[in-house]
Design a protein around this nucleic acid. Sequence first.
DNA 1: TTTAATATTGAAAACGATTTCAAATAGAAT
DNA 2: ATTCTATTTGAAATCGTTTTCAATATTAAA
Lengths: 323, 323
Amino acid sequence: MVNLKDVAKRAGVSVSTASYSINGSTLISDDTKKKVLDAAKEIGYRPNGMAKNLKKQKTNIIGLFLSGFSGPFFTEMMEGIQDVVMSKGYELVVCASADRHRLLVESYVDGAIILNYHMEDHLLESLANEKLPIIMLDRELKGPYIKNVLLPNKKGSAMMVNYLISKGHKRIGFIAGSIESYDGESRLEGFIKELNNHNISFLEQDLLRAEFTELSGHYQMSSYLEKMGNDLPTAMVCANDEMALGAIRAIQENGLNVPDDIAIVGFDDIYASQNNNPPLTTIKVPRKQWGTIAAQSLLQMLDNQFDFEPEQILVELISRTSG
Amino acid sequence: MVNLKDVAKRAGVSVSTASYSINGSTLISDDTKKKVLDAAKEIGYRPNGMAKNLKKQKTNIIGLFLSGFSGPFFTEMMEGIQDVVMSKGYELVVCASADRHRLLVESYVDGAIILNYHMEDHLLESLANEKLPIIMLDRELKGPYIKNVLLPNKKGSAMMVNYLISKGHKRIGFIAGSIESYDGESRLEGFIKELNNHNISFLEQDLLRAEFTELSGHYQMSSYLEKMGNDLPTAMVCANDEMALGAIRAIQENGLNVPDDIAIVGFDDIYASQNNNPPLTTIKVPRKQWGTIAAQSLLQMLDNQFDFEPEQILVELISRTSG
DNA sequence: TTTAATATTGAAAACGATTTCAAATAGAAT
DNA sequence: ATTCTATTTGAAATCGTTTTCAATATTAAA
């Protein structure tokens, strides 16, 4: 491997001069600088990031740590993060893991954005205690180096409940996702709470548990229909769009009509929702903005500003024909 | 920052003993090992990856370098890669960039999978020359440390052409994507070639250029319909499903029927295609398998095996109602 | 010329790990 | 007690940079 020493030797200067030249320091005369740069190009020099980071105690890398890559939901968010991170001279790496991740734990990153329910609170807290700035996207966590950028799930659910009640619905079911999901559970929580605000109590029997996928939504709704016979709610709120789409399919397969027999509404506004038949009424989440705000907040911390609250994310009810 | 020296001091041993203990060497007695591990836990030691990698000249990281995070297409492929990479004790980082990427160039990764038309051939070739194993997903590149894991685009197009001709179509148009895309262009190439094999010559006027998105497909098809009036092909092949979906929407908005007036077929078989109205006839690409084969091939090279050909990827024609 | 000021350069010490090689210790055999 | 072997440990070199500090070369002023 060709290193700085080789470049220096070739250019006939010392290692330090070579380093300065390559990093564009003003200390070095243009002549020597050129000599060094030429030498570097000639022998194909490429700096070693590990050595550089070790010395500088800084990587200029931001990590986005996910629990997995699946789902159409996250790519827009990743784009939002990438835009901001890149514009500030950092690099983004996206990693998935089933628990701790080497890149997070072993000082590969200057800051981290977490959307990974596998990762334990105390790991993240102790990292933050060692001054690693962290943005939490999937739960609330406190700490001097931690900021939360969370979706207004409860507010979204409340909006949806109000909307459905204003349309005359009195018995409303809910298709929840897996219980580990912060977003999913707070959507459920907000839903029940707003129902109660209207003096409607939620029937446990009308709570279905799926796993955020179209398939699981379809499956759970099918068994529910079979189990309940004609004893059905007039509307169901789903914790995300995918499950809503699956539920709609199940209902239609049973010869029932959406929204006439059962209204189905979702959460997220993924791309497929508008083209569905019928188009899905849902809560639109500004995914790219979510990423943008997360990245901005992180970079602000990396700039040694800690006394701020991340910008609020606003959701919007999109009324289509499914509910 | 607490480092190995601190651990050693705390445990009352030398740095080397501490290192051995933590890495589970058999050289160290169980007693001392335990002493060191306890000390490490007590003071919250976390190894420094940069130092480790610098010394070992190895990172155990595989990089996946994309041109961007957008599109529903890649997440499955990423899952395939992740599965294999993780099972072999490596980590995966996913990066997007508009040209070279620091993590690729500055020795952060032991191997790279490239799906990024921004990256220049000669950069990749010179990296490979320095013994960095590379898998190319988006073009053909030769070199001792380079393997190509490419989709059988031409074959897929040919299958589609044959299918359409067998259904009686004689004038078939094509909606291409941006000209930089290897997959897109080879799909077009295979399409034209197979037409010629049937002694049908392709009319330049029936070649539309969009940008792989639903929106661009919709737009290009709309202007095309307006421009051509009644002088239309009876079928159109699209270089991917998104554009096909957009095209269908445009056609329907013009009061025409798919497939009766114009048959539309796609390529990829994305999730939305089966639920479209009408469901889209397309070429199904095994995306996850694509990732799996890529990762396996890369790890094989990292295991110092170079004399092999990556497994072939097979595509399949899915006949639905759109064409 | 000599001196002072400034512009360039180089030697060497970090950064935090791994690993080689030699030394120390313990235990067993004589 | 002495020697030998096997086990366990430690000192120091190394990986490729950056950066401090001191030294040298250059220029301008006296």
